[in-house]
């Protein structure tokens, strides 16, 4: 229910809490209309504050001008445009020096799914293994949306992208996405969580926990970021799509700590049918029943598997 009383109260409380804090990006970022990533980074930095170093590897986030263009910046805090491949290790180096001179500065990565799970994965995995003190955020728009909607390891099976097109011989991506949040959980990070901006209270709660965890070690936040341009849906529907992802269990909301294990922050019981979600999005328009069944099966299996983790951690 998108228009319920709960929603009403929640949005008010977030505004009361955060509304006075400064938006640390310039007003003019050239993200697409209805961009979920722009919404995410503005909320995030507002909450993180200015004692931070931000790294934004190539993708929509620097692409929208956060690191600026020809001598003008888009961010009011220190921001760097690292490589697509090295965000985590680069932040680790900064943090080492600040620790050495006794300064407490937050390290924040705002990375796309390619810079996280594809070419960026090695440095991410290494930094997580070393428990480097940083908050690494994956903004998952399921592909290389900044450069023309190419497929990534995070692109779900069946998705149309510019490198998994729909034709006689191929009907969208042939293989499943990898679940980066789960992979990071297996690194036993200080904190791992998934989030969706349709559930803003939940997001702020997790952001606070992740920030606190990043003072101790590696914190990973995986935020699902539907992209109206690349996924083919109207810009006004971004938040609705976010919500439907969660309501269908296509996206599950959970958090993990080494001591508490995995815990769902929103019930995964009684999900809406996945087909309703898929119907709304252009990149799935061509799906046949087999493909829809495959995706539904995968969603069900993911939930089963995560529940198994939840039970395991509850026992331990």
């Amino acid at each position: 229910c998108p228009h319920g009383a709960l929603e009403y109260n929640t949005s008010g409380s977030v505004y009361t809490r955060i509304g006075d804090k400064e938006d640390l990006f310039v007003p003019g970022l050239s993200a697409c209309q209805g961009c979920n990533s722009e919404l995410l980074i503005r909320h995030t930095l507002r909450n993180v504050g200015s004692n931070v170093v931000v790294a934004t590897p190539p993708g929509c986030i620097p692409g929208m001008g956060t690191v600026g263009y020809n001598g003008k910046t888009g961010t009011k805090v220190p921001v760097f445009h690292p490589l697509l491949t090295n965000t985590a290790s680069m932040l680790a180096g900064i943090k080492k020096q600040y620790n050495r001179v006794g300064r407490d500065v937050t390290m924040l990565a705002l990375a796309g799914d390619g810079g996280v799970g594809d070419v960026g994965f090695q440095s991410l995995s290494g930094a997580a293994e070393r428990n480097e003190q940083q908050l690494f955020m994956c903004v998952d728009n399921e592909g290389y949306m900044n450069t023309g909607m190419q497929s990534s390891g995070s692109t779900p099976a069946g998705s149309w992208t510019s490198t998994t097109p729909v034709g006689k011989e191929m009907q969208g991506k042939r293989t499943d996405a990898k679940n980066m949040a789960r992979i990071m959980m297996m690194h036993n990070c200080e904190y791992v969580a998934t989030a969706s901006l349709s559930f803003m209270d939940d997001y702020y709660d997790k952001l606070d926990k992740a920030l606190a965890a990043s003072k101790r070690g590696f914190a990973y936040l995986h935020v699902y970021a539907p992209c109206p341009t690349g996924w083919r849906f109207p810009a006004a529907e971004t938040i609705e799509v976010c919500r439907k992802q969660v309501e269908s269990n296509f996206v599950t909301l959970w958090e993990f700590t080494p001591d508490q294990g995995l815990q769902f922050t929103r019930s995964v019981d009684k999900p809406a049918p996945l087909a309703d979600y898929l119907k709304q999005i252009g990149k799935y328009r061509h799906l046949n029943q087999d493909q829809i069944d495959h995706l539904q099966r995968r969603v069900d299996n993911q939930v089963k598997s995560l529940k198994a983790f939840e039970q395991t951690s509850a026992v331990s």
């Binding site: 929603e7 008010g12 007003p27 503005r42």
Partner: peptide, 24 residues
């Protein structure tokens, strides 16, 4: 003034007025 528009506006251009939220 439930602030839903403010929460979800990607460019954060919603501004609070005495009795309503307006758009920059």
């Amino acid at each position: 003034k439930c602030a839903t528009c403010w929460i979800y506006c990607p460019v954060q251009c919603i501004v609070e007025k005495p009795a309503w939220f307006d758009i920059d």
